[in-house]
Design a binder for these strands. Structure first.
Lengths: 121, 121
DNA sequence: TCCATGATTCGAGAATTATCGAATTATCCA
DNA sequence: TGGATAATTCGATAATTCTCGAATCATGGA
Protein backbone atom coordinates (compact mmCIF):
# COMPACT_ATOMS: atom_id res chain seq x y z
CA UNK A 1 0.00 0.00 0.00
CA UNK A 2 1.49 3.29 -1.09
CA UNK A 3 0.10 6.78 -1.22
CA UNK A 4 -1.47 6.34 -4.62
CA UNK A 5 -3.24 3.15 -3.66
CA UNK A 6 -4.57 4.85 -0.57
CA UNK A 7 -5.78 7.88 -2.49
CA UNK A 8 -7.51 5.60 -4.94
CA UNK A 9 -9.11 3.74 -2.07
CA UNK A 10 -10.38 6.76 -0.20
CA UNK A 11 -11.45 8.35 -3.46
CA UNK A 12 -13.45 5.24 -4.22
CA UNK A 13 -15.27 5.52 -0.90
CA UNK A 14 -15.84 9.25 -1.22
CA UNK A 15 -18.93 8.96 -3.37
CA UNK A 16 -22.37 8.09 -2.15
CA UNK A 17 -23.27 5.34 -4.59
CA UNK A 18 -19.89 3.67 -4.23
CA UNK A 19 -19.88 3.91 -0.45
CA UNK A 20 -23.34 2.39 -0.36
CA UNK A 21 -22.28 -0.33 -2.78
CA UNK A 22 -19.25 -1.23 -0.72
CA UNK A 23 -21.26 -1.44 2.47
CA UNK A 24 -23.83 -3.54 0.72
CA UNK A 25 -21.08 -5.93 -0.34
CA UNK A 26 -19.67 -6.02 3.17
CA UNK A 27 -23.03 -7.18 4.43
CA UNK A 28 -23.39 -9.63 1.57
CA UNK A 29 -20.18 -11.30 2.63
CA UNK A 30 -18.12 -13.71 0.54
CA UNK A 31 -21.16 -14.78 -1.46
CA UNK A 32 -21.24 -11.36 -3.05
CA UNK A 33 -23.97 -9.89 -5.17
CA UNK A 34 -24.63 -9.58 -8.94
CA UNK A 35 -24.11 -6.16 -10.50
CA UNK A 36 -27.75 -5.99 -11.51
CA UNK A 37 -28.98 -6.60 -7.99
CA UNK A 38 -26.71 -3.90 -6.63
CA UNK A 39 -27.99 -1.49 -9.25
CA UNK A 40 -31.55 -2.35 -8.30
CA UNK A 41 -30.94 -1.98 -4.57
CA UNK A 42 -29.27 1.37 -5.04
CA UNK A 43 -31.75 2.55 -7.64
CA UNK A 44 -28.95 3.43 -10.02
CA UNK A 45 -28.80 2.90 -13.80
CA UNK A 46 -26.81 -0.21 -14.67
CA UNK A 47 -24.21 1.60 -16.71
CA UNK A 48 -23.56 4.21 -14.06
CA UNK A 49 -23.22 1.57 -11.41
CA UNK A 50 -20.93 -0.46 -13.60
CA UNK A 51 -18.55 2.48 -13.71
CA UNK A 52 -18.65 2.76 -9.93
CA UNK A 53 -18.04 -0.94 -9.41
CA UNK A 54 -15.07 -0.74 -11.72
CA UNK A 55 -13.65 2.05 -9.60
CA UNK A 56 -14.10 0.07 -6.39
CA UNK A 57 -12.46 -2.90 -8.02
CA UNK A 58 -9.53 -0.92 -9.33
CA UNK A 59 -9.07 0.50 -5.87
CA UNK A 60 -8.77 -3.01 -4.46
CA UNK A 61 -11.95 -2.76 -2.42
CA UNK A 62 -14.02 -5.18 -4.44
CA UNK A 63 -13.51 -8.14 -6.69
CA UNK A 64 -15.58 -9.58 -9.48
CA UNK A 65 -16.25 -13.05 -10.80
CA UNK A 66 -18.45 -14.19 -13.62
CA UNK A 67 -21.21 -16.66 -12.93
CA UNK A 68 -23.26 -17.51 -15.94
CA UNK A 69 -24.29 -14.30 -17.53
CA UNK A 70 -24.01 -12.24 -14.44
CA UNK A 71 -21.03 -10.77 -12.70
CA UNK A 72 -20.84 -11.19 -8.96
CA UNK A 73 -19.08 -8.56 -6.92
CA UNK A 74 -17.83 -8.99 -3.40
CA UNK A 75 -16.05 -6.77 -0.92
CA UNK A 76 -12.30 -7.19 -0.78
CA UNK A 77 -11.64 -7.26 2.94
CA UNK A 78 -7.91 -7.51 2.57
CA UNK A 79 -7.94 -4.36 0.50
CA UNK A 80 -10.04 -2.58 3.09
CA UNK A 81 -7.76 -3.51 5.90
CA UNK A 82 -4.68 -2.43 3.95
CA UNK A 83 -6.31 0.94 3.44
CA UNK A 84 -7.16 1.33 7.11
CA UNK A 85 -3.71 0.15 8.06
CA UNK A 86 -2.13 2.80 5.87
CA UNK A 87 -4.14 5.51 7.55
CA UNK A 88 -2.78 4.76 11.00
CA UNK A 89 0.50 3.29 9.90
CA UNK A 90 3.01 5.17 12.00
CA UNK A 91 0.60 5.90 14.78
CA UNK A 92 2.24 3.67 17.30
CA UNK A 93 5.77 4.40 16.24
CA UNK A 94 6.44 6.97 18.87
CA UNK A 95 3.06 7.63 20.32
CA UNK A 96 1.06 4.57 21.33
CA UNK A 97 -1.02 6.65 23.70
CA UNK A 98 -2.48 8.54 20.77
CA UNK A 99 -3.86 5.67 18.80
CA UNK A 100 -4.82 3.21 21.47
CA UNK A 101 -8.27 4.73 21.80
CA UNK A 102 -8.66 4.55 18.06
CA UNK A 103 -8.25 0.92 17.28
CA UNK A 104 -7.68 -0.98 20.44
CA UNK A 105 -10.96 0.14 21.86
CA UNK A 106 -13.32 1.04 19.11
CA UNK A 107 -12.85 -0.91 15.97
CA UNK A 108 -12.80 -4.49 17.17
CA UNK A 109 -15.86 -3.85 19.30
CA UNK A 110 -17.69 -2.18 16.47
CA UNK A 111 -17.08 -5.26 14.39
CA UNK A 112 -16.67 -8.71 15.77
CA UNK A 113 -17.50 -9.03 19.45
CA UNK A 114 -14.45 -10.53 21.31
CA UNK A 115 -14.37 -13.62 19.12
CA UNK A 116 -17.16 -16.14 19.67
CA UNK A 117 -16.36 -19.74 20.52
CA UNK A 118 -15.37 -20.81 17.07
CA UNK A 119 -15.93 -19.70 13.52
CA UNK A 120 -16.04 -21.44 10.19
CA UNK A 121 -14.55 -20.49 6.83
CA UNK B 1 -22.04 8.89 12.00
CA UNK B 2 -24.36 9.01 9.03
CA UNK B 3 -23.76 8.72 5.30
CA UNK B 4 -22.99 12.38 4.85
CA UNK B 5 -20.44 12.43 7.64
CA UNK B 6 -18.78 9.40 6.15
CA UNK B 7 -18.69 10.89 2.67
CA UNK B 8 -17.16 14.03 4.09
CA UNK B 9 -14.59 11.96 5.94
CA UNK B 10 -13.56 9.81 3.01
CA UNK B 11 -13.60 12.84 0.75
CA UNK B 12 -11.26 14.57 3.15
CA UNK B 13 -8.82 11.68 2.95
CA UNK B 14 -9.08 11.36 -0.81
CA UNK B 15 -6.59 14.09 -1.57
CA UNK B 16 -2.85 13.78 -1.37
CA UNK B 17 -2.04 16.85 0.71
CA UNK B 18 -4.83 16.15 3.16
CA UNK B 19 -4.00 12.49 3.50
CA UNK B 20 -0.37 13.39 4.16
CA UNK B 21 -1.42 16.05 6.66
CA UNK B 22 -3.64 13.65 8.54
CA UNK B 23 -0.93 11.02 8.75
CA UNK B 24 1.51 13.64 9.93
CA UNK B 25 -0.89 14.58 12.68
CA UNK B 26 -1.39 10.95 13.64
CA UNK B 27 2.34 10.64 14.15
CA UNK B 28 2.50 13.95 16.00
CA UNK B 29 0.02 12.62 18.53
CA UNK B 30 -1.95 14.68 21.02
CA UNK B 31 0.67 17.43 21.03
CA UNK B 32 -0.33 18.29 17.48
CA UNK B 33 1.48 20.58 15.09
CA UNK B 34 1.13 24.25 14.09
CA UNK B 35 -0.39 24.98 10.70
CA UNK B 36 2.80 26.64 9.53
CA UNK B 37 4.93 23.63 10.34
CA UNK B 38 2.57 21.32 8.49
CA UNK B 39 2.68 23.62 5.48
CA UNK B 40 6.47 23.59 5.59
CA UNK B 41 6.70 19.81 5.94
CA UNK B 42 4.34 19.26 3.06
CA UNK B 43 5.85 22.03 0.93
CA UNK B 44 2.45 23.56 0.40
CA UNK B 45 1.48 27.27 0.39
CA UNK B 46 -0.01 28.33 3.70
CA UNK B 47 -3.33 29.40 2.27
CA UNK B 48 -3.80 26.20 0.31
CA UNK B 49 -2.98 24.14 3.34
CA UNK B 50 -5.30 26.16 5.49
CA UNK B 51 -8.14 25.20 3.21
CA UNK B 52 -7.20 21.55 3.49
CA UNK B 53 -6.94 21.68 7.27
CA UNK B 54 -10.36 23.27 7.41
CA UNK B 55 -11.74 20.39 5.37
CA UNK B 56 -10.16 17.78 7.65
CA UNK B 57 -11.54 19.62 10.66
CA UNK B 58 -15.01 19.90 9.24
CA UNK B 59 -14.90 16.20 8.51
CA UNK B 60 -14.18 15.47 12.15
CA UNK B 61 -10.71 14.11 11.47
CA UNK B 62 -8.72 16.95 13.02
CA UNK B 63 -9.19 19.58 15.66
CA UNK B 64 -7.60 22.96 16.14
CA UNK B 65 -6.61 25.04 19.13
CA UNK B 66 -4.96 28.43 19.27
CA UNK B 67 -1.68 28.81 21.11
CA UNK B 68 -0.30 32.30 21.03
CA UNK B 69 -0.37 33.37 17.46
CA UNK B 70 -0.25 29.95 15.99
CA UNK B 71 -2.96 27.38 15.53
CA UNK B 72 -2.16 23.86 16.54
CA UNK B 73 -3.86 21.01 14.72
CA UNK B 74 -4.10 17.48 15.94
CA UNK B 75 -5.66 14.30 14.59
CA UNK B 76 -9.10 13.49 15.89
CA UNK B 77 -8.83 9.81 16.65
CA UNK B 78 -12.42 9.47 17.72
CA UNK B 79 -13.50 10.84 14.37
CA UNK B 80 -11.24 8.42 12.56
CA UNK B 81 -12.58 5.44 14.41
CA UNK B 82 -16.16 6.51 13.80
CA UNK B 83 -15.39 6.66 10.10
CA UNK B 84 -13.81 3.23 10.07
CA UNK B 85 -16.64 1.88 12.16
CA UNK B 86 -19.17 3.14 9.66
CA UNK B 87 -17.39 1.40 6.83
CA UNK B 88 -17.73 -2.02 8.38
CA UNK B 89 -20.83 -1.33 10.40
CA UNK B 90 -23.06 -4.21 9.51
CA UNK B 91 -20.29 -6.54 8.67
CA UNK B 92 -20.82 -8.86 11.55
CA UNK B 93 -24.55 -8.64 11.56
CA UNK B 94 -25.10 -11.82 9.67
CA UNK B 95 -21.64 -12.67 8.44
CA UNK B 96 -18.91 -12.62 11.06
CA UNK B 97 -16.79 -14.91 8.95
CA UNK B 98 -16.42 -12.20 6.35
CA UNK B 99 -15.03 -9.43 8.48
CA UNK B 100 -13.05 -11.29 11.06
CA UNK B 101 -9.97 -11.25 8.86
CA UNK B 102 -10.45 -7.54 8.36
CA UNK B 103 -10.38 -6.14 11.82
CA UNK B 104 -9.77 -8.91 14.25
CA UNK B 105 -6.52 -9.83 12.63
CA UNK B 106 -5.15 -6.88 10.77
CA UNK B 107 -5.96 -3.59 12.31
CA UNK B 108 -5.02 -4.04 15.93
CA UNK B 109 -1.73 -5.61 14.88
CA UNK B 110 -0.99 -2.85 12.44
CA UNK B 111 -1.48 -0.38 15.23
CA UNK B 112 -0.85 -1.03 18.86
CA UNK B 113 0.85 -4.34 19.63
CA UNK B 114 -1.29 -6.16 22.27
CA UNK B 115 -0.90 -3.34 24.80
CA UNK B 116 2.52 -2.91 26.35
CA UNK B 117 3.02 -3.07 30.11
CA UNK B 118 1.65 0.33 30.87
CA UNK B 119 1.06 3.60 29.13
CA UNK B 120 0.93 7.20 30.23
CA UNK B 121 -1.52 9.96 29.38
C1' DT C 1 -0.43 52.65 18.36
C1' DC C 2 2.41 50.57 14.79
C1' DC C 3 4.67 46.71 12.84
C1' DA C 4 5.68 41.86 12.13
C1' DT C 5 4.15 37.17 12.26
C1' DG C 6 0.91 33.30 11.74
C1' DA C 7 -3.15 31.97 9.74
C1' DT C 8 -7.56 32.33 7.27
C1' DT C 9 -10.92 33.89 3.64
C1' DC C 10 -12.18 35.37 -0.99
C1' DG C 11 -12.47 34.74 -5.86
C1' DA C 12 -11.56 32.98 -10.32
C1' DG C 13 -9.42 29.83 -13.54
C1' DA C 14 -7.85 24.94 -14.13
C1' DA C 15 -8.47 20.26 -13.50
C1' DT C 16 -10.99 16.35 -12.12
C1' DT C 17 -15.11 13.54 -11.49
C1' DA C 18 -20.05 12.11 -12.12
C1' DT C 19 -23.84 10.93 -14.99
C1' DC C 20 -26.31 8.64 -18.42
C1' DG C 21 -27.88 7.73 -23.54
C1' DA C 22 -26.27 4.89 -27.05
C1' DA C 23 -23.60 1.25 -28.71
C1' DT C 24 -20.99 -2.99 -27.68
C1' DT C 25 -19.59 -7.48 -25.61
C1' DA C 26 -20.64 -11.95 -23.42
C1' DT C 27 -23.59 -15.72 -22.22
C1' DC C 28 -27.45 -18.79 -22.47
C1' DC C 29 -31.23 -21.08 -24.59
C1' DA C 30 -34.37 -22.52 -28.34
C1' DT D 1 -28.23 -18.93 -36.01
C1' DG D 2 -31.31 -15.70 -33.72
C1' DG D 3 -33.15 -13.51 -29.78
C1' DA D 4 -33.06 -12.27 -24.97
C1' DT D 5 -30.63 -11.07 -20.83
C1' DA D 6 -26.65 -9.13 -18.05
C1' DA D 7 -23.16 -6.10 -18.01
C1' DT D 8 -19.65 -2.99 -19.83
C1' DT D 9 -17.53 0.79 -22.68
C1' DC D 10 -17.75 5.15 -25.15
C1' DG D 11 -18.55 10.03 -25.40
C1' DA D 12 -20.22 14.42 -24.17
C1' DT D 13 -22.29 17.43 -20.77
C1' DA D 14 -22.80 18.85 -16.01
C1' DA D 15 -21.08 19.39 -11.56
C1' DT D 16 -17.58 19.42 -8.25
C1' DT D 17 -13.04 20.19 -6.39
C1' DC D 18 -8.24 22.06 -6.38
C1' DT D 19 -5.03 25.79 -6.37
C1' DC D 20 -3.07 30.04 -5.28
C1' DG D 21 -2.66 35.42 -5.55
C1' DA D 22 -4.48 39.00 -3.01
C1' DA D 23 -6.75 40.74 0.82
C1' DT D 24 -8.13 40.20 5.61
C1' DC D 25 -8.09 38.85 10.59
C1' DA D 26 -5.74 37.93 15.11
C1' DT D 27 -1.97 38.03 18.26
C1' DG D 28 2.21 39.72 20.56
C1' DG D 29 5.91 42.92 21.20
C1' DA D 30 8.23 47.58 20.89
Amino acid sequence: MDTNNALEGFGALAQDTRLAAFRLLVVAGPAGMPAGTIAERLATPANTLSTHLAILTRAGLASARREGRQIIYSADMAGARALIGYLVEDCCGGHPEACAPLLDAAVPDACCPPAPKEMRL
